[in-house]
Write a protein that binds this DNA or RNA. Structure first.
Ligand code: FES
Ligand code: FES
Lengths: 152, 152
DNA sequence: TGAAATCCCGACAGAAATGGTCGTATACTG
DNA sequence: CAGTATACGACCATTTCTGTCGGGATTTCA
């Protein structure tokens, strides 16, 4: 039904949180989980995934934890979702290597692939920094306006 | 993981099929299901949903079946998905009347709502006619290029 | 009028995805 | 070494999705 999984949601929240605390060198999974009241162990696994995909850098031991691997501007929502939920395709049949048996008959896959690309483009154009900056306490909400093109 | 349900997929296929057969007055659920090799009873239920939501018109009895309620140009992919899967929100918590308990802490909901609107806009800009016309046997593939704006 | 075709609809069972927990191993700090 | 924290795999509970069944209502047609 076209919605983010909770894991992806948690992941985005966590990254945003990290982006908002650049002063600290690293934050533990537990700290972040507590900040939002989400299951610590689950978040831990999510952060591990993000680490494995190069979005975060981890450090074990005391005062260890996670930190963004790059500038918040360089991490897109797309990457986060992709890292957590794997490649997504709007069509139920993945179109990848092994398409579903209906492939020949299903004539809807191709045009929807374009839609898929468009959505991916939207997600790619959003960075963690965008999310973090969204609600400036007083700072002028300088809205960014992007144009995404859909070629059908 | 941001993908259409099979039901929505089936629904789009069926509508496309109906759009491609305007000469016939109506096609039965079984005919359409057989054309694509999808479970007839399941498709029947989907078509019933679409009928209830005003996208199709049904007619019982011999030579009965379903037909588009409007011109294929006037039926958007968004409507189809919405009719079948209900309202979708990219955020896991529906943001509607009763948000989830995390609402105060989850600061990511708002910006993602914009993304949600953008995606909805993309889907709204695609009509069944667009899908049906996609693969013209020889007809020049006149590509439509749309711009969707995302204000963050 | 009766049979056949077809839509209508609610209930339900099986399958799959998702959310979340646990236990243990490993790495770092001091 | 003791404590803190990540890494990772196994596992279960819950929800969502897919598909089936059965009975009922409408329309057509002979
Ligand atoms: S349903 Fe498999 S190719 Fe579209
Ligand atoms: S997780 Fe519920 S408001 Fe975002």
């Amino acid at each position: 039904m076209l919605k983010l999984t909770k894991k992806a949601d948690y992941g985005l929240m966590a990254l945003k949180y990290l982006a908002e605390h650049p002063e600290t060198t690293a934050l533990s999974a537990k700290e972040v989980a507590d900040a939002y009241g989400i299951p610590a162990q689950l978040l831990a696994k999510i952060l591990q995934l993000l680490t494995k995909n190069g979005l975060l850098r981890s450090h074990a031991g005391m005062n260890g934890g996670y930190a963004l691997a790059r500038d918040a501007r360089e991490i897109s929502a797309y990457e986060v979702i992709h890292a957590i939920d794997g490649p997504f395709f709007i069509t139920s049949c993945t179109k990848g290597a092994k398409s579903c048996e209906l492939t020949p008959s299903c004539t809807i896959k191709e045009p929807l692939a374009r839609v898929n690309d468009t959505i991916a483009g939207v997600l790619k154009s959003i960075s963690i920094h965008d999310l973090a900056e969204f609600e400036q306490p007083v700072g002028r909400a300088r809205e960014a306006n992007r144009l995404v093109s859909l070629t059908l």
